[in-house]
């Protein structure tokens, strides 16, 4: 991908995207702007849109058609969190459980994918022995989409790669993917994500 990615900030300094943009794998290719400037942005300048779990989805839902056009024309949209107001083609609202046991929080690798290569499900499941930080919701898999990781059961898909036209949606139904990376194999996640994001041949 030769065009830069665009990260949408949401008013909080810690959500500015500065940390992600400063990663060596980003190499100046992640620009940032306030989410509410969306209508004024020329999306043709960008290859990808990066949407935090903290994004105003009600606002984005009002712009779903423009997001879909961006995808159809070859753009990548990476979205995090539970979808409450559908804003991505083919992706409905998130499902959660009223009560969680440990087995409901285990991250299950369904297929290998370069972003998660060498990242163990165990390390995604537990941080300091506590489960549930990576994600705990799931979305129904759209037709033609790839289910990569699930939570608790194989049909509860947490990480979805969904081709849309010439573009692709990567939906991570949990805490922002780019915040992960501690000791252990999860340290590979953000570098591999950036590699995938900016490599033209890494189509779904």
């Amino acid at each position: 991908m030769t065009k830069p990615a665009l990260y949408f900030s949401f008013g909080h300094p810690e959500g500015s995207g500065a940390g992600l943009a400063a990663r060596s794998g980003a190499a100046g290719r992640i620009e940032r702007c306030d989410i509410y400037a969306f209508d004024e942005i020329d999306l043709d300048l960008y290859g990808a849109l990066l949407i935090s779990m903290h994004a105003d989805q009600r606002f984005l839902a009002g712009r779903a058609e423009r997001i879909e056009r961006f995808l159809l024309e070859g753009g990548t949209v990476v979205a995090n969190g539970h979808v409450a107001y559908p804003f991505l083609p083919g992706i409905g609202t998130a499902r959660t459980l009223p009560h969680y046991g440990l087995d409901d929080l285990r991250i299950l690798r369904l297929v290998e994918h370069p972003i998660w290569a060498g990242v163990s499900g165990e390390d995604l499941t537990f941080r300091r022995g506590v489960a549930g930080f990576y994600g705990r919701s799931w979305h129904e898999l759209p037709p033609g989409a790839l289910a990569i990781n699930a939570v608790g059961a194989p049909d509860r898909v947490l990480d979805i790669l969904h081709p849309v036209g010439r573009g692709r949606v990567l939906l991570h139904g949990g805490n922002d993917l780019w915040q992960f990376g501690g000791p252990g194999s999860t340290a590979r996640l953000v570098p591999q994500f950036l590699e995938w994001l900016f490599t033209p041949e890494s189509r779904p």
């Binding site: 779990m53 989805q57 009600r58 969190g81 409450a84 998130a94 959660t96």
Partner: peptide, 10 residues
């Protein structure tokens, strides 16, 4: 007030 995020919605 509703900020429009998924967790405000939930």
């Amino acid at each position: 007030l509703d900020g429009g995020t998924f967790y405000h919605h939930a």
